[in-house]
Lab assay of single mutants.
Amino acid sequence: MASQGTKRSYEQMETDGERQNATEIRASVGKMIDGIGRFYIQMCTELKLSDYEGRLIQNSLTIERMVLSAFDERRNKYLEEHPSAGKDPKKTGGPIYKRVDRKWMRELVLYDKEEIRRIWRQANNGDDATAGLTHMMIWHSNLNDTTYQRTRALVRTGMDPRMCSLMQGSTLPRRSGAAGAAVKGVGTMVMELIRMIKRGINDRNFWRGENGRKTRSAYERMCNILKGKFQTAAQRAMMDQVRESRNPGNAEIEDLIFLARSALILRGSVAHKSCLPACVYGPAVASGYDFEKEGYSLVGIDPFKLLQNSQVYSLIRPNENPAHKSQLVWMACNSAAFEDLRVLSFIRGTKVSPRGKLSTRGVQIASNENMDAMESSTLELRSRYWAIRTRSGGNTNQQRASAGQISVQPAFSVQRNLPFDKPTIMAAFTGNTEGRTSDMRAEIIRMMEGAKPEEMSFQGRGVFELSDERAANPIVPSFDMSNEGSYFFGDNAEEYDN
C-alpha cells in the first residue's frame, strides 16, 4: 500500500510504541512475548500442572481467558453494579484439565481477579502490559475465525453469508486497541457500523446529549479505520460520505453494504499476525530463551520457528480426527482463516481442507461434555516452508469459486491468482447506482469489472525454506488448481455463540 510509510507498523501498534527502528520493534515485541511466557509459567505453578498438562491447549485457553477477564475493567465495573446470582464479580476462573488415573478430569478453578492481575503485572515488570493482553485477544479471535462461520451475524446486519472472507476479527472485544483495529476485516468494521446506525434509528437519543457526542466521535473513528483499509480513492470518498452524514440511517447502511461487497474484489488491507497460545510461549521462556534479547516478529519467520520446536497437546472428542484438529489450530496460529487453501497447503506441506470436510468441533470443551471418553493427542503445528504475512489485500483475480465463501483475504505475501467468483459478486451490483453516491458507485463498479483474471497478485513473492531466515531465496510455489480455494466452501461450520 502506498501510504505504508505514514502508518505505524503493526509491531508498533502491538507494543504501543512511538516510531521505533526494526531492532527496537523486535525487542519490544519480544518483551511482550516474554511477559506472556513468564505469566503462563507462574500460572502453571499456581495450578500445580504437570509439564504435559501445561502444554494442553484447553488449559492455555482457560488461563488466557482468566487474565483477560481480570483486566476487563468495563465488564468488571458492570458486574459490580449489576450483581447477578451466583456470579462473584471479583473472581474469575474456568475449567482446568488434569490427568488422573490414566483419565482426563475437569476441575473448575476460581481465583481472585486481583490475584491474577498481581501475577500478570509481576510477570511483566510491574506494568499492565496491555500489548500482551491484546495479543491474547487476537489469538482467540484468530481461533474463532478458523472455527466458526459468522453466517447468522452477517444475515442479521443485512449482509450476504458468502462475504465471510471479510469477517476477520469479528469476535475481537471493543477494547483491543490499535492492534485489534489493524486485524479487523472490512466486513467486521461494516458490521460494527451498521449495528451502531441501527441503534440510532431505533433509539432517538442515541446521537443526542453528552453521551451522543461520545457516540458520534466513536462512529467517526470507526469510519476512519474502515476508510484506511480501502485502497481505492472511490471507496475512500464513499467512506467520507458515510462519516460526514448528519443523521446516519438506511442510506448509510446501503452504502456500507455496497462497500463491503466491493471489497470482495477491490480488497481492503487487513493486517495478519501470528499470535500463538500462551502454552507455546511459556515452555520456550522456561527453556531459557530470551525473546527480548533475541527479538521477535509476528509477521516473519519467528512464529514458524517457534511452532517448529513446540509440543502442544489437545483434548480430542471420541469421533474427532486429531489431524483435522491440528489443521484448525495451525490455521489459527498463522492467522489464515480466509487465505486461499492452495497457498496454505503449499506452505504447510500437507493438504489443507475446507472447514466442512474437517471432523472436528471447536477447541474448547463445553462444561456439560462427558470427560470419560476424552483422549488427548499432539497437535501437528509444523510447516514445510515459511512466508511473510501481508497486510495488503493483493490485486484481484477471477477463479472458480464456491457456493460458500466467494473470495479470499490473503494472509501471506505469496504470488498467486486470487480466487473470487466474479459473476456471483457482480450480480449483486445491478441497477442500484442512484442517489448521492452514484458517481462513486459507478466508478467502483467500473474498477471491479476491469479486474483481470490473468493478473498475478504479489508478483514474484515466494515462500522460503525454514533454514532461509533472511528470506534470501524465494520459492514461487505451484498450486494444484483442481483443489478448492475457499475454506468455508459450501460450508456447515458451527455458528459462533458468545
Rank of each mutant, 00 (worst) to 15 (best):
M1H: 13
S3H: 12
Q4T: 09
T6K: 00
T6R: 00
K7H: 01
R8W: 10
S9R: 00
Y10A: 15
M13S: 02
T15C: 06
D16T: 03
G17W: 03
N21K: 15
A22L: 01
V29N: 01
G30V: 05
K31T: 05
M32S: 15
I33D: 02
D34S: 12
D34P: 00
F39Q: 04
Y40N: 01
Q42D: 04
C44W: 11
K48G: 08
S50D: 05
D51Y: 00
Y52S: 13
E53P: 02
L56P: 11
I57S: 05
I57T: 08
I57Q: 12
I57N: 08
Q58M: 01
Q58N: 15
N59D: 14
S60K: 03
S60A: 09
L61F: 09
T62Y: 08
R65L: 06
M66G: 13
V67K: 09
V67W: 05
V67R: 05
L68K: 11
L68S: 13
A70K: 05
A70H: 05
F71N: 11
E73M: 05
E73W: 11
E73G: 06
R74N: 06
Y78S: 02
L79Q: 09
H82N: 09
P83W: 06
A85M: 07
G86C: 03
G86I: 01
K87M: 11
D88F: 06
P89Y: 08
K90P: 00
K90E: 01
T92F: 12
G93R: 05
P95H: 12
P95K: 11
I96T: 13
I96S: 10
I96E: 08
Y97P: 03
K98L: 13
K98I: 05
R99G: 12
R99V: 10
R99W: 07
V100F: 06
D101L: 13
K103N: 15
W104K: 03
M105Q: 10
M105H: 12
R106Y: 11
R106V: 09
L108R: 06
V109C: 15
L110S: 03
D112Y: 13
K113M: 07
K113A: 01
I116T: 13
R118S: 06
R118L: 14
R118W: 11
I119S: 06
A123S: 14
A123C: 14
N124D: 05
N125F: 13
G126L: 15
G126A: 14
T134L: 05
W139T: 11
N142C: 07
N144P: 07
N144V: 10
D145P: 05
T147I: 14
T147A: 02
Y148L: 05
R150C: 07
L154G: 01
V155C: 07
V155T: 13
M159Y: 04
M159G: 03
D160V: 10
P161C: 04
M167P: 02
G169S: 05
T171L: 09
T171N: 09
L172N: 06
R174Q: 06
R174A: 00
R175S: 10
A178C: 05
A182Y: 12
A182P: 03
A182Q: 08
V183Q: 05
K184Y: 05
K184M: 09
G185T: 05
G187R: 07
G187N: 00
G187V: 11
T188D: 09
M191S: 06
I194L: 13
I194H: 01
I194G: 00
I194S: 05
I194R: 11
M196Q: 13
M196E: 05
I197G: 02
I197W: 12
I201M: 13
N202V: 10
N202L: 11
N202D: 01
D203M: 04
R204H: 10
R204Y: 13
R204C: 06
W207G: 06
R208C: 06
G209A: 05
N211T: 13
K214C: 04
R216S: 10
A218K: 07
A218F: 13
Y219Q: 04
Y219T: 14
M222S: 14
C223F: 09
N224A: 09
N224W: 08
L226T: 12
L226H: 11
L226I: 10
K227D: 08
K227W: 09
K227S: 08
F230K: 01
Q231N: 05
Q231T: 02
Q231K: 15
A234P: 13
Q235M: 05
Q235P: 12
R236Q: 04
R236C: 07
M238V: 03
M239R: 00
E244F: 01
S245Y: 09
N247D: 03
P248G: 04
P248R: 05
A251R: 01
E252G: 01
I253V: 07
E254W: 09
D255N: 14
L256W: 03
L256I: 04
L259G: 14
R261I: 07
S262G: 13
A263P: 00
L264I: 10
S269Y: 02
S269L: 03
S269F: 01
C275Y: 03
L276H: 13
P277M: 13
P277Y: 04
Y281F: 07
G282E: 07
P283Q: 15
P283K: 10
A284L: 11
V285F: 01
V285Q: 05
A286N: 10
D290R: 02
F291G: 14
F291P: 06
F291E: 01
F291K: 13
K293E: 14
E294I: 02
G295R: 07
Y296H: 06
L298I: 07
I301V: 11
I301H: 08
P303A: 15
P303Y: 02
F304W: 01
K305S: 09
K305L: 04
K305P: 05
L306N: 10
L306I: 13
L307T: 12
L307S: 05
Q308P: 00
V312E: 06
L315R: 10
I316K: 00
R317V: 08
R317Y: 02
P318C: 13
N319C: 09
E320F: 07
E320S: 08
P322Q: 11
H324P: 09
H324C: 02
K325L: 01
L328D: 08
V329S: 06
A332E: 05
N334L: 03
S335G: 11
S335V: 03
E339Q: 09
E339A: 03
L341G: 03
L341I: 12
V343D: 03
V343P: 03
L344A: 04
L344V: 08
L344H: 06
R348A: 09
G349R: 06
G349F: 13
K351G: 02
V352T: 07
S353I: 13
S353F: 09
P354F: 05
P354K: 06
P354T: 06
R355W: 12
G356F: 08
K357F: 07
L358R: 07
L358H: 09
T360G: 07
V363E: 04
I365L: 15
S367V: 06
N368W: 01
N368H: 10
E369P: 12
N370T: 12
D372T: 09
E375Y: 05
E375Q: 00
E375W: 12
S377Q: 01
T378Y: 11
L379G: 03
W386F: 02
W386E: 07
W386T: 07
T390K: 07
R391E: 05
R391M: 04
S392R: 05
N395R: 14
N397D: 00
Q399I: 04
Q399K: 15
R400A: 06
A401T: 03
S402W: 00
S402I: 01
S402R: 15
A403W: 00
I406V: 14
S407W: 07
V408R: 00
P410S: 12
F412R: 04
F412D: 01
R416T: 10
N417C: 03
L418E: 00
T424M: 11
I425G: 00
M426R: 06
M426F: 02
A427R: 05
T430H: 01
G431T: 07
N432D: 00
E434I: 07
G435W: 14
R436A: 02
T437G: 01
S438P: 01
D439L: 01
M440P: 02
R441M: 08
A442T: 15
A442W: 00
E443G: 11
I445P: 03
E449Y: 00
E449S: 07
E449R: 06
K452E: 04
K452W: 01
E454H: 05
M456S: 09
Q459D: 03
Q459Y: 03
G460A: 15
G462D: 01
E465L: 00
D468Q: 03
E469A: 10
E469C: 02
E469Y: 06
E469Q: 14
A472E: 12
P474V: 15
V476H: 00
P477A: 09
S478W: 11
F479C: 15
M481R: 15
M481Y: 03
S482V: 00
S482A: 00
N483E: 05
G485A: 03
G485H: 02
Y487P: 03
F488V: 05
F488Y: 05
F488A: 01
F489L: 06
G490A: 01
G490R: 13
D491W: 11
A493H: 06
Y496K: 09
D497T: 11
D497Y: 15
